[in-house]
Computed example of a mutant assay.
Amino acid sequence: MAGRGLDVEGTIAREGALSRVPAAFAGVVDAARARIADSFDDGRLHSAYIYGSIPRGTATPGLSDLDLLLALHTAPTEADRAAATAVEQALDRSFTQIDGVGILLFSARTLLSELERHDLGFFVACLCTPLLGDDLADQLPRYRPTPLLARETNGDLSRALAGWRRQAAEAHTDHQRAALSRLVARRIVRTGFTLIMPRWGGWTSDLTESAEVFGLYYPQRAGQMRRAATIGRTPSPSPDVLRELIDDLGPWLAAEYAAVHGEKAARP
């Protein structure tokens, strides 16, 4: 029976669809499609995808960001990255509905590789909505909420902590601290969810639901995870918030994750 983000066969259902895009963001999505097509019109683009709150239908005008992934026929070049940055900036300037634009660039070969089968492959197949080109999900398996999926999606939290500490030390403005708090909080909540995902037996990308489900299994950390979910939606410039996330909740979660699921396979 379908439920908890699963289809009738018990595999994780693709969570987004263009039909779920809120009316306020329809023009944003159309413009993103057109700008990507124009900027990558030399045959290098294999396919483009949108992910996050906009295709899930939960985006809030003025607060939500636009998240895109481009699959290229070959490894991204500096010219590709410059083109993507130009698209990001143009879209961000053109639409007040969105608060920032992010474009990920990968080769189709990387996204389909065995090493990325349960990380980037899962991301494309289940969390991304096709926007342009042939859908790579057709070449990927169906996924279940397994310990392997947990390990390969978020089993590298410990590696992120040192970088976040460095960024926190170098953040000198409220804007920088708030942006970092959002990034860290979202990653921690999603890691907290995938820690318990195999036991819960389902999938969600909703921060509030993720924190609530986590709290069922780790009540002693439930309050912290709920606060992290709030920060993921409404960032804070408070240094105390960053300290709690990076120096307390984060290290505990990384250690618990490694003990339960092991560490993610190393990338080159």
Rank of each mutant, 00 (worst) to 15 (best):
A2W: 07
D7L: 05
I12E: 01
A13V: 06
E15D: 11
G16A: 05
A17F: 07
P22N: 09
A23R: 12
V29I: 14
I36R: 01
G43H: 07
S47C: 04
A48I: 03
I50N: 02
S53W: 05
I54E: 03
T58N: 03
A59S: 10
P61N: 06
L66C: 10
D67H: 08
L70V: 09
L72T: 04
T77L: 00
E78Y: 01
R81H: 00
A82D: 02
A83V: 02
A84K: 01
A86S: 13
D92E: 13
R93W: 00
S94Q: 13
T96D: 15
T96N: 11
G100P: 10
G102T: 10
L111F: 09
L112K: 09
R117K: 14
F123N: 10
C126E: 02
L132A: 11
G133L: 11
L136V: 07
L136G: 07
Y143N: 09
R144M: 13
R151C: 05
E152C: 06
T153M: 15
D156E: 12
S158C: 05
A160I: 00
A162E: 15
Q167G: 03
A168W: 15
E170V: 02
A171W: 13
A171I: 14
H172G: 15
Q176I: 01
A178L: 09
A178V: 08
I188T: 07
G192V: 04
I196W: 07
G201Y: 13
V213T: 10
F214V: 10
L216P: 00
Y218I: 04
P219R: 09
R227H: 14
I231V: 15
G232P: 05
G232A: 09
P235Y: 04
S238M: 02
R243Y: 13
L249H: 08
L253Y: 06
L253M: 12
A258K: 10
A266R: 15
